[in-house]
Computed example of a mutant assay.
Amino acid sequence: MSTEPPEAGSQELAARPAGGTPLRDTRVPHMPFAWVSPLLAGAAAALVLRIAFGGLPGQRYSAMLGSFVFLAPAVCGAVTVYMAERIKRRGWGYYVCVPWVSTALFVLGTLLVYIEGIICAIVIVPLFSVMGSLGGLAMGIVCRITHWPKPALYGFAVLPLVLGAIEPHWPNPDQISRTSRTLFIAAPAERVWHELNDARDIRPSEVGDAWAYRIGVPMPVAGVTEDTPEGRVRKVQWQKNVHFEEIVTEWRPLQRVSWRYRFSPDSFPAGALDDHVVIGGHYFDLRDSAYTLTPREGGTELRIDVSWRVSTRFNWYADRVAQFLLGDFSEHILRFYKARSESAAAVA
């Protein structure tokens, strides 16, 4: 019985005639830097898919569809392993780990050609790495136990294109979540209340350590509550000309203020955020926030509550990212109000 590995699985031995003399050597010739060619091939294949998935949010071939988010990195890993197996047999560790590099190259390529923003790139890399490993492992198994790795690879590549055309007809599930943080401030409630409703000239050094701002979300510049004909409205400005309104829904002076967010078509200028995941958009929205002030001995306890919506095929992942980023943001914004309130109280 022949124990030779299948066609695309290893260094193929030449076909032999009855006399046992090799007819020809079909191995892929060794080339300098051959180890990098599978990585580049995998990254290039996924990049082609990203270009194909350039549709608008909620439409066919949007980059936020599950058919792209799950399958593009899987194709990247599958192509990487297939090309590597054409050179020589690889181990299981290669199937799992090397696709991490090719998916990272893929993400880097999307940044270099300006079809992806830095925020999405950073956020999606962990999920892409896992899916790349699964695609590489699947192709490794195909190469070891079958004689048709090339048809399998074609199937890998076509599947996201087929699903990308029909997936928008399926409704996205909505998931509503909330986070809460509390901090003690050594200042009276009057001082804290004032800072909540009249935050001006916010410096990057006051909030810049939050992870959301580290990965590219514009930093806040001001947030001021004003009386308008429709009621109290907190007007917010961020860097990069981002602006939006917070409609006050509860107003108990020195005790509690809450608001819902209102975004206009020009709230986020082009390039301010990644265009397909803007706040208030098809896939993500901030719903409301509230601050509660509780007098304590020596100061005030300030609590923030924030709720949001995610609507994707991968809510289990997107919501955890939102939990981390918004939880971290909440902690830093409380520290901002603490620093300002305590500083103003000390001056007074």
Rank of each mutant, 00 (worst) to 15 (best):
A186W: 05
A186E: 15
P188G: 02
P188I: 03
R191N: 04
V192H: 00
V192I: 02
W193S: 01
H194R: 04
H194V: 03
E195F: 00
N197Y: 03
A199T: 01
A199K: 00
D201S: 14
D201I: 01
P204E: 02
E206A: 10
E206S: 03
D209L: 03
A210E: 05
W211L: 09
A212N: 07
A212V: 14
Y213Q: 06
R214V: 04
I215A: 02
G216K: 08
V217F: 06
V217C: 01
V217R: 00
P218F: 06
P218W: 06
P218H: 09
M219V: 06
M219Y: 05
V221L: 12
V221W: 03
V221I: 11
V224P: 06
T225V: 08
T225L: 04
T225S: 05
T225A: 06
T225N: 03
D227C: 06
P229H: 09
E230G: 06
E230K: 01
R234Y: 09
K235I: 09
Q237C: 11
Q239R: 10
Q239H: 09
N241G: 13
H243K: 15
F244W: 15
F244N: 10
T249I: 14
T249E: 14
E250I: 04
W251T: 00
R252E: 13
R252W: 05
V257T: 05
V257K: 00
V257M: 04
W259P: 01
S264R: 15
P265W: 09
P265C: 12
S267R: 13
F268R: 09
F268C: 10
G271D: 14
L273V: 15
D274H: 04
D275H: 14
H276Y: 14
V277S: 12
V277R: 07
V278I: 15
I279M: 15
G280A: 11
G281Y: 04
Y283M: 12
D285E: 13
D285H: 08
